[in-house]
Amino acid sequence: MPHVERGMKVGLFGGSFNPPHAGHVLVSEIALRRLGLDQIWWMVSPGNPLKDHSDLEALEARVTASNSMVEDPRVKVTAFEAVYGLRYTAETLDFLKRHNPGIHFVWVMGADNLASFHRWQDWRGIAQTFPIAVIDRPGSTLSYLSAPMAKVFSRHRLDESDARRLPTAHAPAWTFIHGPRSTLSSTAIRKARASRTQGKKPETDKMP
């Protein structure tokens, strides 16, 4: 895990990063600025249990690609979940809470994940472990009203004007942050790559 000092405010941005892209960078920039974070960790997961792994790049390749995207020294790329055999977010957050006393962690996720958050293992437990910052994504702006998690924890939502209070708030606490949105997605990038590969004609032998 990246080095931290007691009292730091740290964002936890988990995902497959398959592949990482500028949209991930944008979410990180917004979280760092609006939440007043000291660091944000890109937690490159071994694989999302809710997703198909057939086109999942090797973990080492995703970590390398993520590091190549990062320029801000406050963004730390880590794959500690694989090292410690942590598969579910609930397990990861419990592990971090036990091993990092005095650190103010915030779970950071895109609004596109909010709609399916109730399908995550022990999602209520996740919401009660650390505060959650939901960053707006195209097509998901109204999820803070309609998502099951948003409804269950509606009275614990902080107005985004108070976002800087979130890292030190007691869970459950969450906020929805509007801002610039990127249309990029890892799924779309993979599909575009696959389409280009399938569209290529096989090379023929060339005369010397």
Rank of each mutant, 00 (worst) to 15 (best):
D205K: 14
F105I: 10
K76E: 08
A79L: 03
A150Q: 03
I30K: 00
Q198S: 15
L142D: 15
D112I: 01
R181Q: 15
A127T: 04
P20R: 06
L35N: 01
P49G: 01
F176E: 01
V75S: 06
A111V: 01
G15T: 06
L158K: 04
A65N: 08
V83F: 11
N113Q: 13
V4S: 10
P49N: 07
S161Y: 11
I103K: 05
G47P: 04
R124W: 05
M207D: 14
M69G: 05
V25F: 03
F13G: 02
L145Q: 15
P148H: 04
M8K: 09
K191M: 10
Q198P: 04
R190T: 06
A61Q: 13
S161H: 13
G11W: 00
D55E: 14
G36N: 08
A115P: 03
A79S: 15
L37S: 01
E5K: 15
A115I: 15
A58G: 09
L12Y: 02
N48V: 05
P148I: 09
S182M: 07
E60G: 11
G199L: 11
A127K: 00
E203Y: 10
V108N: 05
V10T: 07
Q121C: 13
A31C: 07
P202H: 09
V70K: 06
A65L: 14
R74W: 06
K201P: 06
P101A: 11
